[in-house]
Design a protein around this nucleic acid. Structure first.
Lengths: 352, 352
DNA sequence: AAGCCTCTGTGTAACGTTCTACACAACAGG
DNA sequence: CCTGTTGTGTAGAACGTTACACAGAGGCTT
């Protein structure tokens, strides 16, 4: 008459099987001070034999749960999964395990996701592009080690890893201006209610664009829609319908650039001959032949490994904040080229 | 001299603040029998006031953790995130919270991810396209409520939700044959060591293709590479290099179809005039103008909500297995057309 | 030889919940 | 007035782990 069909082995069972005390087993498990080699051997054998695995919930009640929580904003964006891969790679060699939740688009749902993770007693948190309010974030980070990804402005109680979106935008503008473009339109995305300096990528890219344009003495021209195929499409249709349309479109995200490409195609503009289109993110599809989009790469992988490393340091006790900036890289492909020739001085636009 | 800066409120604190016993609070929390309306009111007020949130780890030690674990194989595939969205939607109205881990490509890492979740005392498990071995899976599912997504062959101790990949492949073959194609090549992906009938989508699609071809009296022609842009590219280069090349390529996944498109372009074949290409999955990029791939849709959202529903039923106690099949749907876009004219016999094809 | 370390191992009190068993009150039926 | 019954609340033992406090056993100094 055994109890349940397949009860899980506990630390008790291991202790009994090895003929030692529970505390001794715990010591071995925790790699604590004061275990003889024989002790360790006996215990590990017993663990092996019983297929014992420590119960994270019980662990979390006293010490650590060896779990870190990752909150994503959206999985469909290709950048975030890349970051997650980086995190997992970095954690592989540590005793920590990452668990994720999807926060979703609004601050409230995001907050709920974060709290759910905290309820589950994670030892640390990595938040990707969160738009919860700053005071809430600071308070959260004061109570649990936290690393924030893709949100500018630093913060005093958490670490952060951000792409230098200002610089990325500058790279694009300089590239386009270098090709001879003057009327460069930028497609942006709502700021999510965050105010300077605690802004997400979209806002930083937009500001970087404006600054770079001003420095070159060019007029900034921003259309705010959303970072989506639809958004890019609409913004492009609107811009090309003007009496003096832009010669280049800089979309703040590749996905919007794809919409811009579709709009251009439908309106009979050849890319890059009649119109230059540039994106941002270097998502996978931009590389494939039919698209071959000029874009900016921010290494999601590197961002992920870095943030995991910072989080582990923080869990180990570091408390002064570290803010890490990842340098972006322009990847010129085949959707950018010099603008169409003007007949003479200023004149007409030629289209096919 | 308070203890720590911001200690988390416990059930004790709530009990004290409400002037009742801990057990009473627990009863309210669990909606258990034997609480008077006044009691409930007092307790909920106290909970509100203290901002109390139950500690999932501690809960898990006796009762439920109200957490379900989701294991993905890869996040870069667009199908899996869609499933996750569906799961989250369904769980929104329940007290359960989903946490995810990324299993990765090999069975061993996947197994580790699953175990990590079990260690964290999840109440149930949803596994997306797992290729752990069948006996292991059955044993796991015997000890914890489990739903398996995208793996054929049923199973006696778990529920499953699968796309009818056989039918999907048949839809494609019939579509192509209906257009007049005879030499239809299929790009497949390694089976991951699983044997019939417990196969993953790729194998089912391949088998469905072979059966459909045979039924029409056509010769099956399969190249096994991987479901990746590279894989699709290589297979296509190989096939088009033959003395009698296929007139249509049916890639088992959209991502491979994109590679096929690139290969066709580089080899100077016009799609769909010189070559038809069809994918599977209806991933986002297939919809955009420059690509507009003919493909098969399997609703990831529906798959997700269904599997979450099944899991909740199972957690509530159902034990006989349910196997749910989702019907696929062909989406004809602009990469499929009748084959190029044979000199003589067949009617001419002219497009655009 | 006494005293004092150091090294290993054990006992046991938490940790925050759940849930069974029970106490008590109020009330109904005989 | 006694005996149930029903409804409401509480005590307290788990659950599986950690980590503090301490007990012995030797070995080194004086």
């Amino acid at each position: 008459m055994r109890s349940s069909p397949a009860r899980r082995a506990t630390i008790q069972d291991v202790a009994q099987s090895a003929g030692v005390s529970v505390s001794a087993v715990s010591k071995v498990l925790r790699d604590a001070y004061g275990v003889s080699p024989e002790m360790r051997a006996k215990v590990t054998t017993a663990i092996e034999k019983l297929g014992y695995r420590p119960h994270a919930g019980a662990r979390g009640m006293r010490g650590r749960s060896f779990t870190v929580g990752v909150v994503l904003t959206e999985m469909s964006s290709p950048f975030q999964p890349e970051v997650v891969d980086g995190i997992n790679d970095q954690l592989e060699s540590s005793p920590f395990q990452a668990i994720m939740t999807v926060g979703g688009a609004n601050a409230e749902r995001q907050q709920r996701s974060i709290e759910a993770l905290v309820d589950r007693q994670v030892d640390g948190l990595i938040l990707i592009a969160p738009f919860v309010r700053q005071p809430w974030l600071e308070k959260l980070a004061a109570s649990i080690p936290t690393v924030v990804v893709a949100r500018h402005g630093g913060g005093s109680s958490y670490d952060s890893v951000v792409d230098d979106d200002y610089e990325g935008a500058r790279l694009v503008v300089d590239h386009l201006a270098g090709l001879g473009h003057q009327r460069i339109m930028h497609i942006s995305h709502p700021s999510g209610g965050l105010k300077r300096p605690f802004v997400l990528s979209q806002t930083a890219r937009c500001e970087g664009y404006v600054q770079a344009m001003n420095r070159l003495g060019l007029d900034a021209d921003v259309i705010e829609t959303t970072y989506s195929e639809q958004g890019g499409y609409q913004a492009t249709v609107e811009a090309l319908g003007r009496s003096v349309p832009p010669t280049a479109i800089f979309a703040g995200a590749d996905i919007a650039a794809l919409g811009a490409l579709r709009a251009a195609e439908e309106l009979g503009r050849q890319v890059p001959d009649d119109l230059t289109v540039v994106g941002y993110d270097n998502i996978y599809v931009t590389t494939i032949g039919r698209i071959s989009l000029t874009t900016v790469d921010q290494s999601g992988q590197l961002t992920g490994t870095t943030s995991a490393r910072l989080l582990l340091e923080r869990i180990e006790g570091r408390s002064q904040p570290v803010h890490y900036v990842v340098a972006p890289r322009l990847i010129a492909r085949s959707t950018s080229a010099p603008p169409a020739v003007h007949s003479g001085g200023r004149g007409g636009k030629r289209k096919r």
